[in-house]
Design a protein around this nucleic acid. Structure first.
Lengths: 348, 348
DNA sequence: TTGTAAGCGTTATCAT
DNA sequence: ATGATAACGCTTACAA
């Protein structure tokens, strides 16, 4: 196909041995300055590029990190930016595989990464994934792995995530403080850890405020806007409808907003609304929607750094290591009923 | 690091030669069924994974496609999904490098991909990139390359993009039909081809309608929401202010919307607004903003298919090949002043 | 300071 | 039907 320039070509033209050229190229100490100069010059002239393939095969490491994500939404894109940055800083290349929320694709991707001999893997588990065999296989091969954002306790690998319990607590506490009394939660898919944790915070906040939770106000749904919409219509159709809704993602919250609008209810007066992720969109709708922000960029960066540490200093990071980042609540008009409360600082 | 299971291990345990094992594994015709069976069984038991590295080195092809993108925004994420799908269908792996709109990063990424011996490259040029040396280098090495979405005529490589002139035309024509007379354009960065083309459509629509363009209504800006905001404030501060704004991206349009709101003007009555990309956000703001949609998923998929074709059948696709997809206008309340016009079909 | 040769995991060519 | 050997591009003892 393409005639790659190799060390051989340089050696031949300069009447040197392969080893000498190799050494010159890598600035080894024991090589004649003139020789080195000649080699470097010719390499430049031929626009020689070392073959990472050969190098990797030889050294049995690729300096590549595989990333498995369920999609490329706003939050994950930001995390990947963080991952990218950390990887670049340490001279690693990142290979992103996106499973489109499908178990089958995640399986295929994992296989690919395993074959490609990546040096380590960052994974955020697809919401659809219930079987972890393929990821267990990674561990079985002793390939360093770190979970980020969405994680599973079935996998014995370090986790970097936000404190979802605390995030759910912040959200619910705020709603309670605003005088809302029947706070519903749109909790996402029933089996998803992230949802369970945010819901735990929701319960804790109620407990601290000495309030009971009405179990009818707990609604499971998909992660889609559609699903948030339908779940909310259900909620609003109840005889004793909720006076506030905490959605565990902004996407779901937007769906809820559409349903609320359709029913002609006013936010924040008739009903309060609060989401999670603080995506740009929630600032633009009317009224702007309150949301819990997670430090996505930092989270990605940290996860990657942790993985690199794990890769380079084998065994230093225990498998049950958890790195937990704080969330931050952004209060906006959708949940601000009590005018005596001041708005939290907003992003520009 | 990790003790990979190789063909050698299998050969040793079965007292076979490497070649036989290799053949058995690949279902070669001339191998004893019993032998094959034994090999396959042991391979399974040891969870043997072929080394793509060794294979690639041998065959001088990686079955990997490198993708260079300026960022991972909504549009590009969707395109990448399309790319992914096409690649998967043909058994290729995709390696996405995101330059974060920075020339330096794009340079580093290109170098990496070149070293990694990808079989082909899909590139969407960063808006900041003015020097194309690194991409020229790709061509110089005869590495198959296809440009998608944002492209440069300086690069002699096929292009897959939408018809931006026609998109700009659709947008402007619609605004004219709605009775707007002073239509401003937020044209993005001055040197960007995509902006120039959409603006060309803007001029053509005026010409067809036999209207003059007031050059004061042409505003250049960044691709950011911020920039759209400030540019719009400028526009609205003019003595003869525009009565409609066509923004060449939704991000910019949202910025414009914020400025319009701030000035207390009503859409679509006082001023019309229309964006480009049809991102989910524009449907959610009030009023919902009209936008020109480009078929991002299909575009990515097509670009990838074209690249694969170019890789597999060398020389069949000429370097000046252009694949041009149609845009589609979604009319929403932000630009719907004339109530006799019906709304175009919306997405669910 | 430079050269020789073995090896990374695989396949292809030629023998047997 | 199976085996031996060279090769892909590079590094690295060891030797000169």
């Amino acid at each position: 196909m393409d005639d790659q320039v190799t060390i051989k070509d340089i050696a031949k033209q300069l009447n040197l041995s392969l080893s000498t050229v190799s050494r010159a190229l890598r600035n080894a100490p024991d090589v004649n300055p003139e020789t080195r100069h000649a080699v470097l010059e010719l390499a430049e002239a031929l626009s020689y590029t070392p073959s990472r393939l050969a190098l990797s095969l030889k050294q049995r490491q690729t300096r590549t990190i595989g990333v498995i994500v369920p999609n490329l939404d706003n939050v994950l894109s930001t995390m990947i930016r963080g991952i990218d940055e950390a990887a670049l800083e340490s001279g690693y290349t990142v290979m992103v595989c996106q499973s489109n929320e499908s178990y089958g694709r995640e399986l295929a991707n994992t296989k690919r990464l395993l074959e490609s001999l990546v040096d380590g893997i960052l994974v955020s588990v697809s919401s659809e994934t219930k079987i972890f065999d393929h990821l267990q296989e990674i561990l079985k091969r002793k390939l360093p792995m770190v979970q980020f954002d969405r994680s599973s306790s079935e996998l014995k690998a370090p986790i970097v995530r936000v404190d979802n319990v605390s995030g759910g607590f912040q959200a619910t506490e705020h709603l309670i403080q605003q005088g809302y009394r029947r706070i519903a939660i749109l909790a996402g898919p029933k089996n998803l850890g992230i949802g369970k944790k945010r819901m735990k915070g929701y319960f804790e906040a109620h407990k601290v405020a000495k309030r009971k939770v009405d179990n009818d106000l707990i609604m499971y749904c998909d992660f889609s806007q559609e699903s948030g919409y339908w779940a909310t219509l259900d909620l609003l159709g109840m005889k004793k409808r909720p006076d506030a809704i905490f959605a565990i993602s902004d996407r779901i919250a937007i769906g809820a907003m559409l349903a609320i609008r359709e029913k002609g209810l006013q936010m924040p007066h008739d009903i309060g609304l609060l989401g999670f992720n603080n995506e740009p969109t929630v600032q633009l709708v009317t009224p702007a929607v309150s949301s819990v922000e997670m430090p996505s960029f930092e989270l990605g960066k940290l996860a990657c750094k942790l993985l690199i540490e794990k890769m380079q200093r084998h065994g230093v990071i225990p498998d049950d290591h958890e790195e937990i980042l704080k969330t931050r609540l952004f209060v906006r008009p959708s949940s601000l009923r009590d005018s005596s409360t001041t708005l939290a600082p907003q992003r520009s």
